[in-house]
Write a protein that binds this DNA or RNA. Structure first.
Lengths: 194, 194
DNA sequence: CGTTACATACCGACCAGACGGTTTGGAGCT
DNA sequence: AGCTCCAAACCGTCTGGTCGGTATGTAACG
């Protein structure tokens, strides 16, 4: 199918350019040039530049949500589930580093409605994550002297920050790093007293 | 001095607009209008729109560096110094929330030279922070099974993330939150074995 | 099979307007 | 007069988006 090739090529080019120079600094001209198509072709598949950006968000949100659902559906002890979720989201974030760069940097460039949509989807994820922590607290395994939102922010901040410092050329191994970050988080989450 | 008023008013307006809508989505027209001056006046004090953005960075970088120097100069036990540094940077980041929003979101909109300058100044801070951790490791108080860059990223991620979730209307008290975040970090940093 | 009828995919010149930045001119102080 | 400070009109550039037109495919009909 030729259709998919053109649209996909445009998306791939857009992602690379947005990650490198930012959304606002990237012109539609540059994108279609990098993708080897014309503006006419692009506007045949996408209704606007904004559409391109949102497609990137859509992919990431769907992927993360699906992975979270799979892991929680498998069940298990609270801390083990939480650990699996955390490690997975770190690894996924590394695998999709350019997406992450764009994701966290360009949210305010979306139309307000789409910003709201992204916010809603993120809250879904967020809430499901919160459930795990609350469950751990009820089981008296996790501390409850720090508000849950703070604990959550403490973990998501690591994910958020990854694209800003992680380099594929660096010494860090992906899975190892995921385990380390998760361990740091869990250690600060556990109760110290019985 | 009238001079300062105009320049200050422009900067204040620029900061608010950049934080709210992003640098690229804010026109010089909007800025001078919000500041109650004209473009002629603005371009008398600043050479470009980019200049406005960099001024915000300059203020933040200087402030943070100065505070770090003051605290480390006072001396003390390693963990106590580190705790003071961490709590201070959290509080400062909350006090300058709009600056933080712009700081972390718009770095790639600066000219390459200025991006490099920001990067250099941040590394200075970074390195001084790293010294504290290494010292703690040498004193066998901090864990050394996780690479120092990972430990540092783990803390800075919280700072980075603050503007994304903290709200002045929320329940969190500034100093209390600073203590909580710092405690989470220190807990994951300490050795568990003697 | 030939021909008509229409849909999909795509091209690329073009446009209106917004933008950052400049220029000109003058008010008010020293 | 000379200087700082600023207002307002102005300009060249670049952008996202449009639009008339073409090429290719394919389904229906006779």
């Amino acid at each position: 199918m030729k259709t998919k090739n053109v649209a996909d090529e445009v998306l791939r080019a857009a992602l690379a350019l947005f990650a490198e120079q930012g959304y606002a600094n990237t012109s539609v001209q540059q994108i279609v040039q990098a993708a080897g198509v014309t503006k006419g072709a692009m506007y045949h598949y996408f209704t606007s530049k904004d559409d391109l950006l949102f497609a990137i968000y859509e992919r990431m949100l769907s992927l993360q949500k699906r992975r979270l659902d799979e892991i929680t559906a498998a069940g298990g002890e609270t801390e083990a589930v939480l650990r699996a979720v955390c490690e997975d989201v770190v690894v996924t974030s590394i695998d999709f580093l350019p997406e992450g760069t764009v994701f966290f940097r360009s949210q305010h460039m979306l139309t307000p409605e789409r910003q709201a949509e992204v916010k809603r989807r993120r809250r879904e994820y967020h809430d499901k994550f919160a459930e795990l922590i609350v469950r751990g607290q009820e089981e008296k395994r996790f501390r409850d002297d720090v508000p849950v939102p703070v604990l959550i922010a403490h973990f998501f901040s690591d994910i958020h920050y990854l694209p800003h410092w992680y380099s594929h050329e660096g010494p860090e191994n992906e899975a190892e790093l995921a385990a380390q970050i998760t361990e740091l988080f869990l250690r600060s989450l556990r109760r110290t007293d019985g």
